[in-house]
Design a protein around this nucleic acid. Structure first.
Lengths: 172, 172
DNA sequence: TGCACATTGTCTAAACATTAGACACACTTG
DNA sequence: CAAGTGTGTCTAATGTTTAGACAATGTGCA
């Protein structure tokens, strides 16, 4: 049994029921919403470990704009909660855009229950990873230096530290 | 005219020619390979600003395994160079897997020239962004605290710093 | 070639940050 | 209530960062 709450947002009550049954035995709590209107307040209250978000809410509008908007809004306000998108209108462009907009994963309807569970677990695990500050820093420093072709003065400027400090950081 | 070299890897010479013409007027230099075998050495020599990688090299094998392998290998060795994948067998699962494996973007054949150019430019721009160390640090600190529900002792442990230091960091 | 300019490696001394350790206090939880 | 854990605060030692300076080394270009 995985700890944490899952928030599921889909305008189709039948799907919500199906998902609830599918996830109910695996996750501590499954909260559902039939519309994303109250998503932000619900997230603030429930503090879910992950969010499963359908992309199509307005009848007849299946471009995914709606879901994309909510994805952005939720991700901006809660950048640490992984959001898994789900849609019936699988489309490569849409999937790519979703991932680039911060989605943790992208699942097509009809989904495989085991796959859905795996995807959510993975998303939660990945979101929970916190690396030491020192490691984060040294990776970033390497990136800055690579972008500046090894020019330490410019790299130090980009990083917002003094040249000498950068010098010391890469020494050790 | 955008600075930097683009490396294009595709087993179809006709496509390489087409891409070269399409990108030639926009980017400083376009280098092509018909097989990814020499990709790593070529990248080391040319230091490209971005890589355009086809996903299917073995005749009859179109699952994208080949391209995915090379994506991982290249991304591991050159994590700062954005890799745009391109494939004729557009598939949501494949695209999602590619992006999660470090691809900067995913384009389907037949592509739109302007879109390809835009995607490459975006990938290069995004890869070149370097934020100040302080900002990176404070974002990471917030993430750690959120994961630990505000428990400073555990967050400090995860971050590899002392409790007092974390205390000071969030004060200022 | 040689000049102007930028960058590096190195140093100093002052300012600042980080550390382990200590301590009273508040908070959960059995 | 008592044990356990976390917080806010302090100290003194240690380590890091800074601006500034300097000669030496590269780099672009006339």
């Amino acid at each position: 049994m995985k700890h944490g709450t899952i928030l599921v947002i889909d305008d189709n009550p039948a799907i919500l029921t199906a998902v609830k049954i599918c996830l109910g035995g695996i996750f501590e709590k499954v909260v559902t919403l039939t519309s994303p209107d109250k998503a932000l307040t619900t997230i603030a209250q429930e503090n879910p470990a992950a969010i499963l978000l359908d992309m199509n809410f307005t009848l007849g509008v299946n471009s995914g704009q709606e879901g994309m908007m909510w994805l952005s809004a939720i991700h901006r306000k809660f950048p640490d909660i992984p959001i898994v998108l789900i849609t019936a209108y699988a489309d490569v462009k849409l999937a790519v855009r979703a991932l680039k907009n911060g989605a943790a994963d992208f699942v097509s309807k009809p989904w495989d229950n085991d796959e859905l569970i795996r995807v959510l677990k993975d998303a939660i695990d990945k979101a929970g990873e916190v690396i030491p500050l020192e490691q984060l820093e040294s990776e970033h420093v390497r990136k800055a230096l690579s972008k500046c072709d090894g020019n330490m003065k410019r790299a130090a400027d980009l990083l917002g530290i003094s040249r000498q400090t950068l010098y010391n950081k890469i020494k050790n």
